[in-house]
Design a binder for these strands. Structure first.
Lengths: 152, 152
DNA sequence: GCTTGACTCTGGAGTGGCTACAGGGTTTTC
DNA sequence: GAAAACCCTGTAGCCACTCCAGAGTCAAGC
């Protein structure tokens, strides 16, 4: 199986496959006479595993850790459990943050029910006021779960 | 006010302030004799506005659009309303995705209640099975709100 | 007046996880 | 045997920063 076939089978862009190879997630495949990468079922399985985990929003580092355990089936899997627990934690934190955000944004939206001059737009004046108030108070802390705009 | 003072007042790293200048969000400040950036209250206000909007997970492009309206207070603010509505949409989508994710992860976690050999770890075998099933089915669509791991 | 230390400057590289070329080589199909 | 489809490497770009090196500037203390 050449890279294009693997890409189709795993619903993954070719460039991404080569990228995974470059960063050491998908071991370098055998090469054909013409220097084409040649894959088999085990590669497809591994790539699907990676893509599924990415779909679960794990980082490549987290996935790398999981793959290490998959590759050495006689180690103790306690760390796997920890990793998943930690990841669940990250997701839960992010959900809370986003819900909070949603609340704020909806309140903000109510400040300007109709179109008018920007100078009198409730949203803009609210944002300015909130920024002013904030200045007096707290700094902001980062988490590990992404913001509101995500690629994939 | 020099950049350090502005940074403190707006709870923002110095490098970020220079970055905002570079990308045209914060207009280039006046310079002192020794080429130091000199800021005043209006800069502080604008920077706080930007940081507050970033805290609401808006992209710099979205913020740029808001600033344009702030700068021309006689335009109609209908676009501002649209922008916020769209952003609320993005956040709502992401919340849904993350909740779904959380459900999946929790189910996954139950698959391995205790530590044992990786080869028999319920989590790993579940992930592999899920990846296998997925292969048969759908490709994945991206949204515009970030994943589970975010900086700030 | 001179040193120390805190502050600032520019420019460049690195982060994650891809994505999109450009400029070539190989294989398949007609 | 030519055209189309596929593949290769290497590089640059995306976002929103963050960190660094190496140099210049400024205020305080001795």
């Amino acid at each position: 199986m050449k890279i294009g076939a693997l890409a189709k089978a795993a619903h993954t862009p070719i460039e991404t496959i080569r990228y995974y190879e470059r960063v050491g997630l998908l071991s370098g495949a055998a090469r054909s006479q013409g220097n084409y990468r040649i894959y088999d079922e085990t590669h497809l399985e591994r790539l699907s595993f990676i893509r599924h985990c990415r779909g679960l929003d794990m980082t490549l580092d987290e996935i790398r850790a999981l793959l290490r355990f998959k590759d050495s089936p006689h180690e103790n899997c306690a760390e796997v459990d920890e990793l998943i627990d930690a990841h669940i934690g990250h997701v839960a934190v992010r959900i809370k943050e986003l819900k909070n955000l949603e609340r704020q944004l909806k309140a903000l939206r109510l400040a300007c029910g109709e179109a008018r001059e920007s100078g009198r737009c409730g949203i803009l004046t609210e944002l300015s006021a909130a920024a002013r108030d904030e200045r007096a108070a707290r700094p902001v802390k980062p988490g590990h779960v992404h913001g509101a705009h995500h690629p994939l």
